[in-house]
Design a protein around this nucleic acid. Structure first.
Length: 949
RNA sequence: GCCCGGGUGGUGGAAUUGGUAGACACGCAGGACUUAAAAUCCUGUAUCCUUUAAAGAUGUGCGGGUUCAAGUCCCGCCCCGGGUACCA
């Protein structure tokens, strides 16, 4: 689609930077053309050179492989360069943009730093070191200064909870985790406190949010980003802890409900917890914290409904009422959001309500719904009668002193004002967005250009770039748990200092690569000002919506950052963005039967075999021979046999002293080429991987009974339509289609399948129709004997009409990205020209140009057959002439009482009166009128006539 | 739960601001050419009733509404897909 669009724009006379789209399915068309000789449009020497020029050293893939990008130091050098810019910058909230760290040092030298609340410097960023004066700053040694500066840099090193995946030996970002397991491989993920390179994207939260308003991106995608940034406005409020100097800060969006607080809840990881908890409660609380910590992310998700918590024994004071309110620890409070503590108002918050009900805490109603709603009983004064939380922002405040009688929205403003003026806290905006973890413990990725001196990170000088990936023997973490780069021998900065061992994530390079396309051969800058000023930003970005909260947010962040530094002229990467639908594949699955057996002490390994044998005995009601049983984890049960899961094999079977505690069926993607009509080729599967060699299959025979005899049984795979992906083994390569029908047919067919934005499973059912169309087009140029039949005759009116209808429609369609309807229109045009027996150069030549973005190869070929010397890509798009489409007649649909009854043809020049009387005079109309006179006659010129009786 | 999409023949889908629902294809059925096949061409193809034809009735997930006129606009539901989730 992007190729069609760009070719069209080029024909229209625009300059198009065209880094994507001219490769087909991973193989660059250029290379393909050279190999096969099938792409005349691209194989011209001139075009190859032009593409090469644009490609430069960059590589060819838009959706590139990490290996391609990171194995190219000429490119990743500049990603490292951008990293250094990020390291050398801080976010100045006063100017609301990123600045060089030097300006911060200057502030420290002249004004010092007043501490966490020094908003001017921190922009609300929490920093864990104290205040200092300008004098103190100058007295700090370099190490201390660097440590402090690190807290401000946009690329910074922080200790943070990360999603650690032990199986992959790496940290994953939130968007790399699906359903609590890693998206890649499906391994469990746990939370771990680690030192990590991070990007202070939170400093840009507001600009990333407001910037969306002016972007021509799909609404759903903008909405996804808005939700992800998750701005919420409210107040932070301090609660003194009774009998101590501590105070707990909470964030709330509902300060109007402060008189309804019945307890405070803090996260198990809250750092004040140890100081707050009272001696009598300590053991319970600590046990709870331990439990909460060990609960994996997955368990937590599965268990959302479960209410748990512990009372700390401590009380806080409600600053407004002086009331004592109990402090609880509860894992529904998240340490990473807000302050990690909440003021609970059970009457007006669903979770607080559930918690209060469960632990029998008071529920104090402070809002009276405007209408007596279902949420409250008739007796509103009796708060305990609430059946569920009333969390709407519609209503009037009650039982709340100075807020009484106010409408909720006004009460929120008033409450913030009171909190502020009484010094209990202040109005605050909170964002859900977290800083982005930047380090990855993998090999493939740009090395982070950092070395350590006394544990303080320093960046490399520009002239020391690129820092190349060192050669290592194994692409695995080291035995001591360090990232793979730890395996590199003698890999030290100046032979002395340790390099950073983690590498950059996939989104590093993809956050700025579009800039490099503008100026890919530049050896002195990442992009020249001249080139960036000329090309500005991406006009059209075609990309998947799955990148909404990952790549597409990060690329906006980096673009704004580079803009702040004055390096590029635009602060948004792409003007317009369209989400293309995915072509989905049909995946096939086999089901691995996994048995969890409780071994007794002294059991040997062959318990597994024994158990396996008995299981099969139960399932297929037949004892297996010893040599038919292999390993317990290599049994594949056919899809329809999964019903045996509920066959109580788990509880029925206890073998000797070894009860089976669970039986699971794990679905595994299987290469689709091994599957025909859902039947698995057993041998192909066994040979696929070494560890499948001895797979045992439970098959289905003709009568649907289980068997292991492959002569009478079949393995029916399960199937599902999902994203086409190498990891799902459901990729269908287009090579066969290209071989059978040619690349143009494939292109056209893909477009013809349906609207661009729609995802759909790949099937080739309609490909014949598109192929026939191309053959029909060919026959306008060559007859069945292969004789060239194009003539120089003057085109008729009808022929010009067919052509210009198409010119107009296709041009409109491309602007609207409605490629499927263009293909229809080409078919209509060729059908019409065939009926008109039109073989005239004047018509066909223009048609070819219009068609060339869609079917570049056949268009180029026929273009040359018409005697043109230069490429069709150099032609100009034909001008549309509306005159040819002027109709002088129209066949009006005649409706009677809104029902279409017949058609009558009239001149378009005819007046309403003329047509009305002509219609009424018509014999058939008279029959329908049955002698009545219409009450009203609706006439819309060129559209319809409707008679109302 | 919340936020976005979407629901039209046997299938993929089309239908500009409300104005002939089903364009264009696939598939299917019948026919022509051919010794035959492929290729190509022609005819038919939403459903139902009557049926020679013509005509009629119904019809865009369900139920209401607005309008001369609704796939399109409004209200209330159902279902499917995607995103997101103890976010205070």
């Amino acid at each position: 689609a992007s190729d069609i669009y760009s070719r069209y724009k080029t024909l229209k006379g625009f300059n198009v930077l065209h880094p994507m789209g001219y490769y087909s399915f991973g193989l660059p068309a250029e290379q393909y053309a050279i190999q096969t000789g099938q792409h005349p449009a691209i194989t011209t020497e001139e075009n190859i050179n032009r593409y090469r020029e644009q490609l430069g050293k960059l590589g060819f893939c838009y959706d590139w492989d990490r290996e391609v990008r990171t194995s190219n130091p000429d490119y990743y050098k500049w990603t490292q360069w951008v990293f250094i810019q990020l390291f050398n910058s801080w976010y100045n909230p006063k100017t609301d943009k990123a600045e060089n760290i030097e300006t911060l040092i200057k502030i420290f030298e002249t004004e010092g730093f007043q501490g966490v609340d020094d908003k001017i410097l921190t922009g609300g960023i929490e920093l864990d070191f104290g205040a200092f004066t300008a004098e103190q700053w100058k007295g700090f040694d370099e190490e201390t200064q660097q440590k402090i500066l690190l807290g401000f840099r946009i690329a910074f090193l922080s200790e943070a909870y990360v999603n650690w995946c032990p199986a992959l030996g790496t940290v994953l970002s939130n968007d790399e985790i699906k359903d609590g397991v890693s998206e890649r491989g499906g391994h469990p993920v746990e939370r771990k406190l680690m030192k990590q390179w991070s990007m202070r994207i939170t400093a840009y939260a507001e600009r990333l949010l407001t910037g969306l308003d002016n972007l021509d991106w799909t609404e759903s995608l903008k909405e996804a980003q808005r939700n992800w940034i998750g701005k919420s406005q409210g107040a932070s409020l301090h609660f003194k802890v009774q009998d101590s100097n501590l105070d707990i800060e909470v964030f709330t969006t509902r300060p109007d409900t402060i008189f309804g607080i019945s307890y405070l809840a803090i996260a198990p990881e809250h750092d004040m917890l140890g100081d707050i908890v009272q001696a009598d409660y300590e053991s319970n609380v600590m046990a709870y914290v331990e439990m909460a910590k060990n609960r994996s992310e997955r368990d937590r998700q599965a268990d959302v409904k479960r209410i748990s918590g512990e009372f700390t024994g401590a009380y806080a004071i409600n600053p407004f009422t002086g009331q004592e309110i109990p402090i609880w620890v509860a894992d529904y409070v998240l340490v990473g959001y807000g302050t990690g503590a909440v003021m609970a108002v059970p009457a007006h918050d669903t979770r607080d309500f559930a918690f209060a009900k469960h632990f029998n805490l008071p529920i104090n109603q402070v809002i009276k719904p405007n209408v007596e709603t279902l949420h409250a009983t008739s007796n509103n004064d009796n708060s305990t009668s609430l059946q569920e939380a009333y969390d709407s922002k519609e209503g009037t405040i009650i039982n709340s002193q100075f807020l009484d009688g106010l409408e909720v929205k006004k009460a929120i403003k008033r409450a913030i004002h009171e909190i502020d003026s009484r010094g209990y806290g202040k109005g605050k905006t909170n964002y859900r967005l977290r800083d982005a973890i930047f380090g990855r413990q993998r090999y493939w990725g740009e090395p982070i250009p950092v070395y350590y001196k006394n544990n303080i990170p320093y960046v490399l000088n520009y002239d020391e770039l690129p820092l190349e990936l060192p050669k290592i023997d194994k692409f695995l973490p080291t035995e001591t748990g360090e990232p793979p780069l730890g395996r590199a021998k003698d890999w030290k900065y100046k032979g002395e200092y340790e390099y950073e061992l983690s590498t950059m994530p996939g989104w590093a390079g993809s956050s700025w690569y579009f800039l490099r396309y503008m100026d890919n051969k530049n050896n002195s800058e990442f992009v020249s000002k001249q080139a960036a000023d000329y090309w500005q930003q991406v006009d059209l970005y075609l990309g998947g919506s799955e990148h909404a909260t990952g790549h597409l947010l990060y690329v906006r962040f980096w673009t704004k950052f580079l803009y702040d530094l004055g390096l590029i002229p635009c602060d948004e990467p792409a003007k317009k963005l369209i989400n293309q639908g995915m072509i989905q594949g049909r995946s096939s699955f086999v089901y691995k039967h996994i048995l969890l057996v409780k071994y007794s002490e002294g059991d040997s390994e062959d318990v597994a075999l024994f158990v396996s044998k008995n299981i099969h005995h139960k399932i297929i009601n037949k004892e297996l021979k010893e040599d038919e049983i292999t390993k317990i984890e290599n049994i594949y049960i056919e899809a329809s046999k999964i019903k045996f899961k509920n066959h109580n094999i788990t509880s029925e079977l206890t073998i000797d002293r070894n009860p089976i505690i669970d039986a699971k069926f794990q679905s595994t993607n299987v290469e689709v080429n091994f599957v025909k009509n859902d039947v698995l080729n057993l041998d192909a599967f066994r040979n696929w991987r070494e560890y499948y060699n001895d797979a045992l299959f439970i098959l289905e025979d003709e009568n649907g009974n289980p068997t292991i005899d492959k002569n009478i049984g079949k393995y029916i795979c399960g199937s599902e339509v999902e994203k086409m992906s190498k990891s799902k083994y459901n990729v269908v390569t287009p090579d066969d289609i290209v071989a059978d029908y040619g690349a143009d047919t494939l292109r056209l067919y893909e477009m013809f399948l349906g609207p661009l934005e729609q995802s759909k499973p790949w099937n080739t059912n309609g490909i014949e129709g598109v192929h026939r169309f191309l053959k029909k087009l060919w026959r306008l140029f060559y007859n069945n004997e292969g004789v060239f039949i194009v003539n120089q005759d003057e085109p008729t009116k009808a022929e010009l009409k067919a052509l210009h209808k198409t010119i107009k429609k296709v041009a409109d369609d491309i602007e609207n990205f409605s490629f499927n309807t263009s293909v229809s229109n080409f078919m209509i045009c060729v059908n019409e020209l065939t009926d008109l027996k039109c073989n005239k150069q004047a018509i066909l030549q223009d048609l070819l140009i219009v068609l060339s973005p869609y079917a570049p190869h056949i268009a180029e070929e026929l273009w040359h057959q018409l005697g043109n010397e230069t490429s069709i890509t150099k032609a100009s798009f034909p001008a549309f002439n509306a005159e040819y489409l002027v109709e002088d007649e129209f066949s009006y649909p005649i409706s009677i009482n809104g029902k279409h009854r017949m058609n009558l043809t009239f001149s378009l020049q005819a007046t309403a009166q003329e047509i009305e009387s002509a219609v009424l005079a018509d014999e058939l109309v008279q029959k329908w009128l049955e002698g009545k006179t219409p009450k009203k006659v609706i006439f819309v010129k060129g559209k319809i006539v409707n008679l109302v009786l």
